[in-house]
Structure formats: structure tokens, C-alpha cells
């Protein structure tokens, strides 16, 4: 197959970027999309040119590193598929393909197609966990969790943190990412003690990071390689509302002496 690529090249965070055009003459339909980029980079290196920087690691669709806006769609044309599991047989001989990085103010571009997604980590830091220090756990079977709850929790927990939801959203909103974590923990009995505190702090962090709001376009769900549903966003909002209505000021500790 012959493929023409228009790839976003940007030397550094502050540099101006632009689309560069490359042509690859011998692309096998069995190649993965990233393997095609490997081939491109090998050719660039052999020609003494700077190869394209892009994020990738496991290439099994689970680590969440890969991040490419392919022909205007996050992770490309195939539903429920991360860039690394997209294969060239999804394209035709002679196709032109546009490849851009995730774009959002909260995801600054570091180089070419590599962006900084640490904002997502900071949302987790704001409360996306159950405070369970090592050592104090009781027997795992003492907590009974109905199967449907465990399944719903798992559906949301499947998030790989790739940021496609932000990339695909016209508002650059991280609602699906945040909501997935809130839903995962909110479906489980272990997640209840911190449930309402968590939603307030995580949503606040989402705002601080400069993500946009949710207009329920549904683009995130469509782009999500794990097909996480925007139903999680409803759940997050419900919890947020409840949390606001029921919040009590935290007692200030007074020390004697």
C-alpha cells in the first residue's frame, strides 16, 4: 500500500508546529498503525532526518501511552481500539492520513505527537483512590459485593488513562476520565466512606487543570478505547449534587495544651 501522511511536527513545547507530509511506498495491511510509524522513523533516521516523536509502550491497548488524532478522530476510525491496535488494513491504498497530537490546554505538547498528560494524574491525586494503607485490610470475602456492582465497577475501572476523551471532546473536557474513576469506586462498598468528598475534590481539580465542561456530545464515549459510557458522567453529576447538598464543614481539630 502507498500511504501519504500529514504529521504534526513541533520541535518543543514553545516552538511553532506544522504539518509535514511524508509518503510511504510499501505499507503492509498487516502492520499496526504504530509499526507504520516505526517504518517512517527508520526511513527518516536513515536519511539523517529527525524521526517523529510519539508516545507508545505496551502496544496491546492497555497501557494508555499511545495517543494520536488520526484523520480527525481520537485513536482513528476503529471503535473501541487504541492507536496501537489499529491496523493499516483499516485504510486503503493511496489514502492520505492526517496525524495530530491530542490538543488541549491541559495537555501541553512536548514534542511532535507527545503531550504531557500529568493533569490526569493530578485529578487522581485529588481523590481518585480509597485510603487503604497497607496492612489493615480484613479478609477479602468479608466484603460482599453483588456481581452486578462488581461488573459495573469493572466497566468503569477499565479506563486506561489515554486522554482520548479529552482529545475527542469539542470542549476538551476530562469528564469521562474523572467520572470513570468516581463510578468505579462509587459502585463498591469500599468506596463509600470517601465517596462524596472524592467527587468534590476531583471535580475541583478537573476545573483547576483547565479542562472544559461536559456538553454531553458523546464524542468521548465513541473515542474511548475501552468504550466507557457517558452514563458514568450522569453518576458523577448526581454524586456531585448530593455531595454539595449534604456537605458539612469538616471539624477543625483543636489541640489541648
Amino acid at each position: 500500500m502507498k500511504i501519504t501522511l500529514h504529521v504534526w511536527r513541533q520541535a518543543g513545547p514553545k516552538a511553532a508546529g506544522k504539518l509535514e507530509t511524508y509518503t510511504l511506498g510499501h505499507v503492509s495491511p498487516d502492520m499496526s498503525f504504530l509499526e507504520m510509524f516505526d517504518v517512517l522513523n527508520e526511513e527518516l533516521v536513515e536519511a539523517g532526518k529527525e524521526p517523529v516523536a510519539f508516545s507508545h509502550d505496551c502496544r496491546e491497548g492497555i497501557c494508555g501511552s499511545c495517543a494520536m488524532m488520526i484523520n480527525g478522530a481520537a485513536h482513528g476510525p476503529m471503535k473501541g481500539t487504541a492507536t496501537c491496535q489499529l491496523h493499516m488494513r483499516s485504510f486503503k491504498d493511496g489514502d492520505e492520513i492526517w496525524v495530530e497530537p491530542w490538543r488541549a490546554r491541559a495537555f501541553p505538547i512536548l514534542k511532535d505527537l507527545v503531550v504531557d498528560r500529568s493533569a490526569l494524574d493530578r485529578i487522581i491525586q485529588a481523590g481518585g483512590y480509597i485510603s487503604a494503607n497497607t496492612g489493615g485490610a480484613r479478609d477479602a470475602n468479608e466484603i460482599l459485593i453483588p456481581k452486578p456492582d462488581a461488573d459495573s465497577a469493572m466497566d468503569a475501572a477499565a479506563c486506561i488513562g489515554c486522554g482520548a476523551c479529552v482529545a475527542a471532546c469539542p470542549n476538551a473536557s476530562a469528564s469521562l476520565f474523572t467520572a470513570a474513576k468516581i463510578s468505579h469506586l462509587g459502585h463498591l462498598p469500599q468506596g463509600q466512606p470517601e465517596r462524596f468528598r472524592r467527587v468534590l475534590t476531583m471535580v475541583e481539580q478537573m476545573d483547576i487543570e483547565g479542562f472544559g465542561h461536559c456538553t454531553l456530545y458523546g464524542e468521548c464515549q465513541e473515542a474511548c478505547p475501552k468504550l466507557i459510557s457517558i452514563d458514568t458522567i450522569s453518576r458523577m453529576n448526581r454524586d456531585y449534587l448530593k455531595a454539595t447538598l449534604t456537605k458539612r464543614p469538616e471539624p477543625t481539630v483543636e489541640y489541648a495544651g
Binding site: L19, R103, N171
Partner: peptide
């Protein structure tokens, strides 16, 4: 502000919205 103009996509295709 979350995706300032000038930093947007050159090509963007809505999928389902």
C-alpha cells in the same frame, strides 16, 4: 480556554455528536 483557537486541530471529524 480549554482548547484555545490557534491550538485546535487542523482536521477534526465529529464521530457521533
Amino acid at each position: 480556554a480549554a482548547r484555545p483557537s490557534g491550538q485546535g486541530y487542523q482536521k477534526y471529524e465529529p464521530q457521533i455528536s
